[in-house]
Simulated assay, not measured.
Amino acid sequence: MNNWKQRYEAYKKGMGYKNKDIARLLDRKLNSIEVSVTREKFPDTFKLAILTYEKMLLNGRITYDEPEDYKVETDE
């Protein structure tokens, strides 16, 4: 996918985010997220998140079959 908007939509779907979730995480207003991703110059911070997500997918670092309550026991 070359189009940043399409890649952003795939990122949101894969991570289970909606624009309102991203706005909350970035401490921004929902409208600012929606305006940012429709501009001709796509935000660099979003590009970094998308590139990181795609790289982790390629490397098998993100999977969707882990149990909901995944926890590693470290204490014996």
Rank of each mutant, 00 (worst) to 15 (best):
R39W: 00
F42P: 13
V35Y: 10
V37W: 09
L48V: 10
P43W: 06
V37P: 12
I50T: 08
S32W: 04
R39I: 00
T52S: 14
D44E: 07
R28G: 09
Y53M: 07
D44T: 07
T45C: 08
M56D: 13
K47L: 07
G60W: 02
S32R: 08
E34C: 10
V37A: 09
V37M: 12
V37Q: 08
N31C: 02
G60N: 06
K55C: 00
S36Y: 02
L30Y: 11
K41D: 11
E40F: 08
R61V: 01
S36A: 12
T38M: 12
E40R: 00
K47V: 15
V35A: 12
L58G: 09
L58D: 05
I50M: 06
F46L: 15
R28L: 15
S36T: 01
S32Y: 01
V37T: 09
R28M: 15
R61E: 14
G60A: 01
F46N: 15
T45R: 06
T52Y: 04
M56V: 00
L48I: 12
T45W: 07
M56H: 04
T45D: 08
R39M: 11
V35R: 13
I33N: 14
R28S: 15
L30T: 03
L51H: 08
F46P: 14
M56Q: 11
L51Y: 06
L51I: 15
P43N: 01
N59C: 03
L30C: 04
M56G: 04
Y53P: 15
F42I: 06
F46C: 10
E40A: 06
F42M: 08
T45I: 07
K47S: 07
T52N: 11
P43G: 10
E34T: 08
R39G: 05
F42R: 14
T38L: 10
K29T: 03
Y53S: 05
E54S: 07
T45G: 08
Y53Q: 07
A49S: 13
T52D: 13
S36W: 03
T38E: 08
N59I: 01
K47H: 08
G60V: 01
S36M: 07
L48T: 12
K47W: 09
I33Y: 09
E34P: 02
N31R: 09
Y53C: 05
L58T: 02
L58C: 01
E54W: 04
